[in-house]
Simulated assay, not measured.
Amino acid sequence: MTHSSLPQHVRSLEVSTRRGTFAGLLATPRNGPRGTVLLLPGYTGSKDEFLPLLPHVVDAGYRAVAVDARGQDGTTGPDEEDAYRQDALAADVLAQAEALGGPVHLLGHSMGGLLARAAVLTDPGPFLSLTLLSSGPAQVGEERQLQLKLLLGALDTMTMAQVWEAMCELRPVNASPGDTERLRARWLRTHPSHLRVVGRQLLSEPDRTAELARTAVPKHVLYGDQDDTWTTELLEDMATRLGARRTVLAGAGHSPNLQMPAETAEALIDFWAGVPSA
């Protein structure tokens, strides 16, 4: 996505923090914002996956910042695997919230939700609310586990370009040639150490629902009824145990932010509007 093709009121941004600089997208309303939202993408995704959502969020008066994690798409990262451990990435999120100037509404999609949860459990202070978007209580489901194990094995023996070709053979990309090339370029910018460490985390993530429930941060669990990464039964049970608001979008799969951005934004904005400001 080039700068010139970004939606109105959205621009590229470098988020400078005490833990380094992170590639981001900033959406700013015309008038003073009602609040700030920090958006964390999923495992093989990027900040761009929030682009369909951002115009709706900014139209409602919220300032929104979507960021690439360390080693993900536009944010560079080192070879050392310790940089991608969950505690390190959670510390990055806390630094991002601090750099944005105060308490933020935090949203994480899929793996980003597990990372958001880890950040809140490390220090809930910087967060007005937490939304887990298509993000479950523990490790991913069996089918995703199999796919992850295949990917991790491939990363040990193949280049990123070779892995991309192999993935496309197994599961062809359902996109236009231009979009396919953008997805390939994004994949090649992602650091393999990020994929290895975070992939192993997705296979072993513990259920920290009870721990999260003890925090006072208002919580929202939002997902599509066709989600195929965690079962809807698991997601419903997690929402109940958290005492969270629960929104289920009929017809949406694992990425409501892409598939049903207007409906997703409506649910988010209604939730944020009911959260007391700092």
Rank of each mutant, 00 (worst) to 15 (best):
L203G: 11
A161V: 09
V140M: 10
T122W: 00
E143A: 14
E142M: 08
R208N: 06
F127W: 04
V120R: 04
S193A: 15
L155K: 09
L130N: 04
K149H: 06
R117M: 13
D207Y: 02
A154F: 01
T190N: 07
L170T: 11
R184P: 05
M167S: 13
A216P: 00
V197M: 04
S134K: 06
E165C: 00
P192R: 10
L212I: 07
W187D: 07
R196L: 03
E181R: 11
V140Q: 12
E211Q: 14
Q145A: 12
A210R: 13
F127A: 05
G125N: 10
V173K: 00
L150A: 13
S129Y: 08
E143T: 12
L170E: 13
Q201A: 13
S134H: 11
A210L: 12
D179L: 12
R182F: 06
R186L: 12
V198S: 13
A175V: 02
S193F: 05
P172S: 02
L121M: 08
V173F: 05
R214A: 15
A175P: 01
G141D: 10
R117Q: 15
L152C: 05
D207T: 03
T209N: 07
A213R: 12
E142C: 00
T131E: 09
G141H: 05
Q139M: 09
V120T: 01
L183G: 00
R189P: 07
A213F: 07
R189Q: 14
L195H: 12
P137H: 03
V163C: 13
R182H: 11
E165T: 14
E169K: 14
V217H: 03
P192G: 11
M158T: 05
E143Q: 14
S129Q: 09
A210S: 14
V163F: 11
H220F: 12
P124W: 04
P218Q: 06
C168F: 02
E142R: 14
V173T: 12
H191R: 15
G199M: 09
D156T: 11
R117C: 09
L203N: 11
L132Y: 06
L133I: 05
K219W: 10
Q162D: 15
K219E: 12
T180A: 15
L155Y: 08
V197E: 12
G199R: 09
Q201T: 13
Q162P: 04
R196D: 03
A161Q: 13
A119Y: 03
T190Y: 05
T180M: 08
E211N: 01
V173G: 00
P126C: 04
E143S: 13
E211C: 02
S134Q: 06
R184I: 03
P206V: 02
S204E: 15
R214V: 06
V163L: 11
M158F: 10
L130K: 04
D123N: 14
E169H: 13
Q139V: 01
R196M: 05
P206W: 05
P177L: 01
A213P: 04
L202D: 09
P172H: 03
V173Y: 05
L132V: 06
T215I: 09
Q145G: 10
M167R: 15
R196A: 02
Q162H: 08
A154P: 01
L203H: 11
V197A: 07
V140D: 10
H220Y: 02
E169V: 14
M158P: 01
A216I: 00
L132H: 08
